[in-house]
Design a protein around this nucleic acid. Sequence first.
DNA 1: CAAATACCTAAACCTAACTTTAGGTTAAGC
DNA 2: GCTTAACCTAAAGTTAGGTTTAGGTATTTG
Lengths: 140, 140
Amino acid sequence: MQEMITTYSIGEVAEKFGLSLPTIRYYDKEGLIPNLNKNEAGVRRFTDENVGSLQMIECLKNAGMPIRDIKQFMQWTLEGDASLDKRYQMFQELRVSVLKQMEAMQNTLNTIDFKCKYYGKATEDGTEKYVKEEMHLERP
Amino acid sequence: MQEMITTYSIGEVAEKFGLSLPTIRYYDKEGLIPNLNKNEAGVRRFTDENVGSLQMIECLKNAGMPIRDIKQFMQWTLEGDASLDKRYQMFQELRVSVLKQMEAMQNTLNTIDFKCKYYGKATEDGTEKYVKEEMHLERP
DNA sequence: CAAATACCTAAACCTAACTTTAGGTTAAGC
DNA sequence: GCTTAACCTAAAGTTAGGTTTAGGTATTTG
């Protein structure tokens, strides 16, 4: 009896993640997708595990992690339980980094919100002149 | 009677913003710092206005805006009130963009938080084996 | 006055993360 | 059996955002 394993083509996966085909091939070449296999014809077939790797790649990219470090992480997963500590530490550090980024982003948003108000009034007035002095009190 | 205007050297400004000297010179060359002048000896002297531009550059960079667009904005400020609409629109679009980025960042953080818990338990157990099946229910 | 410090320019160089190009294989539909 | 679509590789090219290099000036300090 045979187990039927569903796999996906690179096109399907590219569609799913909104990535280009060359980008996915590049990730593969860089070792970011462990255990990704090709069929007899040399065509990549993505298992659910491989799709999961891509999901994680997207997450780590979003966290600002460079490709080289994502690769490192993926290589660790191949080492199994021996690398659990390293992976744990990585995620803890990443967490701190992301929290910092969110804080910075919040400050940025505050400044932008202020500027929206500022330019809102300025466009109403048709000039920056009045709002410039008026709001300088709020933001020196 | 003379007005005394306090200015800063590129070194002081670099220090203040944690930027390298070449980076600031590069911003200047790219036209990101309107009205930045040099003294008789050809040395840049930063006024408070110039420092303010750098502050804004840092904000816009943080919002993910490319140098070319920051330059555009700075050129608009030189055009005065005629460009108020454009600047207002820019900040409104930027606001939306930043909100999206913060949402994405929050999702990323959630995934990372999950992974921290996951690897926390795994390192306790000394193996991923148990936690893998156990937590698969939470995150399929 | 010598030497260290702080600045200057122009131009070349660098890195990350892709993208493009060129040429080739395979499978499905008509 | 031919064409079209979807895949493949290797290698070169691209872009952003700086950094480095090389050579020079101006000012302060021992």
